[in-house]
Structure formats: C-alpha cells, structure tokens
C-alpha cells in the first residue's frame, strides 16, 4: 500500500510535467494542424534560462537572501524568453509555409527541432548544467508512508494553476474565443475580422510559456538540464496529446497524466526497462478503439 501510494505520487508529478508540455502540442495542432516538433526544445530552452538566471543570482549572492524572488524571476524570464522564441519560430519556420503542404510544415518543424537542440549544445556546451539550488533537501512530508517532497507539490500545484488559467483564458476571454474560432474555421473567422496570424502567434506563445514553466520545474526537480533534455519528454508529451485526443485541451492533461502514471507503474510493478513500451502500448490500444483519442472530437468533414 505504501509503495502503491508512493508510485501514485511519482506518477502524478511526472504526469503533470507531461501534461504541461502536451498542452503546447495540442493547442498548436488544434489551430494549424501542425505537430510542432520543436516544442520539446522550447521546453529545454526554458530549463536553460532557469539555470542561467539562478546561477547569475547565486553569483551575486542574491539567491541565498531571496530564494523565492530568485525562483519567481527564473520562471518569469524563462517564460518571456520562450515567448519570444516561439514568435521567432513561428515567423521564420512556419508562417512562410502556411499555404504549403502539411508535409513541408512538418519537415520544417523537425528541422527546427534539430536546429534548436544543436544550437543549445553549441551555446551552452555538452555538459549537464546543475541547478544551483536543490529542492529535494528543502523538506518533505509523509502521507500513509509515501514520501512527498515539497518540490513535487509545487510542480503539481503549479501545473494545475497554469492549466486552470489556460482553460479560463481559452473559454472566457475574447482572445480565447478568437483562438477557438480560428481553430474551427480559419477563413470564416478571418471574414469576421479575426486576425488569424496574430491569433496563431498567440497560440504559439501560450504553448511555449507553459513549456518554459515545465522546463524550469523539471530542472529544479531533477537538479540539472542538458541540451537534449527536450527530445524524450517532447515525444512522450506528443504521445500524451494524441492519447487524449489531439486538439483537445482537457485531453492533453488527461493524456499526460495517463502516460506519467503508466510509466511509473510499469516501472514499479512490471519491468522498468520496458516502461516506455507500456506507455506506447496504451497509446496504440486507445487509438485502435478510439482513433481520435480519449477526448477527441468527432472527425467532421471540414477537417478531413
């Protein structure tokens, strides 16, 4: 029981991170039907900005005095940086191909992913960069024998707040409405005066801000970042988005949680070397019975 509870905690933490990244995939897919493979690298860039900010603050002696301020600043800078990165990415790699075939767009995304990952390697080096603060030692508590560290709580609550915020934004604001309208029918929404380009850019920005937050969280949680850290979580989050029904926000969160849970439980109760296999088996099974994913919308004529 104790082990089971512990695995639940592990799975929820991992799932929350996947869910945050998956949201970026699913939003972009929803609006321009593009699988933005460079999204994982934006997540990694967020992690790097976090470590750079914190290391700078530490070298100035500010971090010891104001750790909370340091963390807030790290998150804020990572989010701002990744927002600009997303705008540049969309402008340079995707907008010129807006009317090209979907395959060209996909290849452009793959190319940008490789470009960013290698760019980070060249700028930041091949070595792991250590986060200057280690939150594992900042305390933990036990629930029914399961150890829960504060960092896990922060990650989970932080992810939850961001997801609720996103949900409110998409469903309650004018911009959110514009996003949904553009996703539904680009031509019609343009006729009604919605600036499609601006809406698409905003979608990219929001997805990337979430990924940046996830990047800093992962850096803090695992204690280090590396240039290629975006690849595997990117693939997993993409699988999560597909599992939940690509284009669907709730689906992405659900998919992320399921992938995280399956991975942890497979490692804990089956064979840990095959944990990824089990995650993808679930994906295949779900897609076999529900090709549009768990929460996937009905495939209508306008999409096909």
């Amino acid at each position: 029981m104790e082990t089971f509870l512990q695995q639940m905690v592990n799975g929820l933490t991992l799932g929350a991170v996947y869910a945050l990244i998956a949201l970026g995939y699913t939003m972009v897919y929803g609006i321009i039907q593009l699988i933005n493979f460079a999204h994982g690298e934006i997540f990694a860039a967020g992690g790097y900005i976090g470590v750079i900010t914190l290391s700078f603050l530490q070298s100035r002696g500010v971090l010891e005095a104001h750790p909370t301020l340091g963390l807030v600043l790290a998150f804020a800078l990572a989010m701002v940086y990744c927002a600009f990165l997303a705008v540049a990415l969309e402008r340079m790699a995707y907008r010129p191909l807006r009317d090209a075939s979907r395959l060209s767009l996909l290849l452009s995304a793959l190319g940008m992913s490789i470009f960013f990952s290698n760019g980070m390697m060249l700028c930041q080096g091949v070595y792991d960069k250590a986060y200057p603060i280690q939150l594992y030692s900042t305390g933990q508590f036990t629930v029914g024998g399961a150890v829960v560290s504060y960092i896990q709580v922060y990650i989970f609550v932080g992810a939850l707040i961001l997801m609720i915020g996103l949900n409110l934004f998409v469903n309650r604001t004018r911009l959110g409405k514009a996003m949904r309208a553009t996703a539904q029918d680009k031509v019609m929404s343009a006729l009604l005066g919605i600036n499609a380009n601006r809406t698409i850019t905003i979608t990219f920005v929001i997805g990337s801000v979430l990924a940046a937050a996830a990047g800093v969280m992962v850096g803090l949680y695992y204690g280090s970042v590396r240039f290629d850290m975006g690849f595997i979580p990117g693939i997993k989050a993409f699988a999560a988005a597909v599992l939940g029904g690509i284009g669907n926000l709730t689906g992405a969160v659900l998919g992320g949680m399921i992938i995280g849970m399956v991975e942890v439980f497979a490692a804990g109760y089956l064979a840990s070397e095959y944990k990824d296999v089990f995650a993808f088996i679930i994906l295949i099974l779900v897609l076999y019975f529900r090709p549009t994913g768990i929460m996937g919308e009905q495939v209508d004529d306008t999409r096909v």
Binding site: T3, Q6, Q7, N10, G11, T13, L14, V218, Y222, M229, I232, P233, E263, V264, F265, A266, A267, G268, Y269, S272, K275
Partner: peptide
C-alpha cells in the same frame, strides 16, 4: 531516462 521514481520505489 530521467525519471527513476518508479524503479526506485520498487
């Protein structure tokens, strides 16, 4: 792999 929580709990 980055996350070993599952196998470590085991």
């Amino acid at each position: 792999d980055k996350d070993f929580s599952g196998v470590l709990t085991k």
